[in-house]
Amino acid sequence: MKSLVIPVGILISTISSFGQTSATATVDSRVTVIEPINITKTVDLDFGNVISAYNPGTVVLSPDGSRIANGVQISNTFPGNVSPAEAQVNHGNNKYSITLPDSFSLYSREDPNQTIVIDDFQVSPNTGEIMDILKIGATLNLKANQPAGFYTNTAGFNVTVSYN
Results as ranks from 00 to 15, higher is better:
residue 56 P to C: 04
residue 32 T to K: 15
residue 111 D to I: 11
residue 75 S to C: 10
residue 44 D to Q: 08
residue 110 E to L: 13
residue 59 V to I: 14
residue 112 P to R: 09
residue 104 F to Q: 04
residue 160 T to Q: 15
residue 45 L to Y: 01
residue 115 T to V: 15
residue 83 S to T: 11
residue 74 I to R: 00
residue 157 F to L: 02
residue 4 L to Q: 14
residue 58 T to E: 08
residue 140 L to H: 12
residue 105 S to A: 06
residue 158 N to P: 00
residue 61 L to T: 05
residue 81 N to K: 11
residue 112 P to V: 11
residue 78 F to T: 13
residue 64 D to Q: 10
residue 97 S to L: 13
residue 76 N to T: 15
residue 77 T to F: 09
residue 28 D to H: 04
residue 91 H to E: 03
residue 37 I to K: 01
residue 16 S to A: 14
residue 143 K to L: 12
residue 72 V to I: 12
residue 145 N to A: 07
residue 64 D to K: 02
residue 10 I to D: 01
residue 140 L to W: 10
residue 16 S to N: 07
residue 57 G to C: 08
residue 96 Y to L: 03
residue 122 Q to V: 11
residue 51 I to M: 11
residue 18 F to M: 14
residue 121 F to M: 06
residue 45 L to N: 05
residue 12 I to M: 12
residue 162 S to Y: 00
residue 162 S to G: 08
residue 91 H to M: 08
residue 32 T to E: 12
residue 52 S to F: 03
residue 33 V to C: 01
residue 111 D to M: 09
residue 89 V to D: 00
residue 90 N to Q: 14
residue 133 I to P: 04
residue 114 Q to T: 14
residue 24 T to A: 10
residue 46 D to N: 13
residue 136 I to A: 01
residue 33 V to T: 00
residue 8 V to M: 14
residue 17 S to C: 09
residue 76 N to W: 03
residue 111 D to W: 02
residue 8 V to H: 04
residue 124 S to R: 06
residue 62 S to N: 08
residue 71 G to D: 07
residue 128 G to R: 06
residue 44 D to S: 13
residue 84 P to G: 03
residue 44 D to E: 11
residue 162 S to N: 15
residue 17 S to N: 10
residue 128 G to M: 07
residue 61 L to I: 08
residue 113 N to P: 01
residue 117 V to N: 03
residue 140 L to Y: 12
residue 150 F to Y: 15
residue 113 N to I: 05
residue 72 V to E: 05
residue 146 Q to F: 12
residue 103 S to T: 04
residue 77 T to M: 08
residue 100 L to P: 04
residue 27 V to R: 03
residue 122 Q to S: 09
residue 44 D to C: 01
residue 10 I to C: 06
residue 109 R to S: 14
residue 98 I to R: 03
residue 154 T to Y: 05
residue 27 V to Q: 07
residue 56 P to K: 11
residue 63 P to A: 09
residue 83 S to M: 02
residue 96 Y to I: 00
residue 9 G to Q: 10
residue 51 I to G: 04
residue 70 N to Y: 12
residue 99 T to Q: 13
residue 28 D to I: 02
residue 23 A to P: 00
residue 2 K to G: 15
residue 149 G to M: 07
residue 99 T to N: 14
residue 10 I to P: 01
residue 138 A to P: 04
residue 155 A to Q: 15
residue 21 T to C: 01
residue 80 G to S: 03
residue 78 F to R: 14
residue 127 T to P: 06
residue 45 L to E: 06
residue 132 D to A: 08
residue 45 L to V: 00
residue 74 I to D: 02
residue 154 T to L: 10
residue 111 D to C: 06
residue 72 V to Q: 04
residue 54 Y to L: 13
residue 12 I to W: 02
residue 46 D to L: 07
residue 17 S to F: 15
residue 81 N to A: 11
residue 137 G to W: 00
residue 87 A to E: 06
residue 131 M to I: 14
residue 67 R to A: 07
residue 79 P to Y: 09
residue 57 G to Q: 09
residue 16 S to Y: 14
residue 112 P to W: 06
residue 62 S to V: 07
residue 49 N to K: 05
residue 160 T to H: 01
residue 90 N to F: 10
residue 89 V to N: 00
residue 17 S to Q: 10
residue 58 T to Y: 05
residue 16 S to W: 13
residue 8 V to K: 08
residue 70 N to R: 09
residue 106 L to R: 01
residue 92 G to D: 15
residue 94 N to I: 14
residue 30 R to Y: 07
residue 15 I to Q: 05
residue 108 S to D: 11
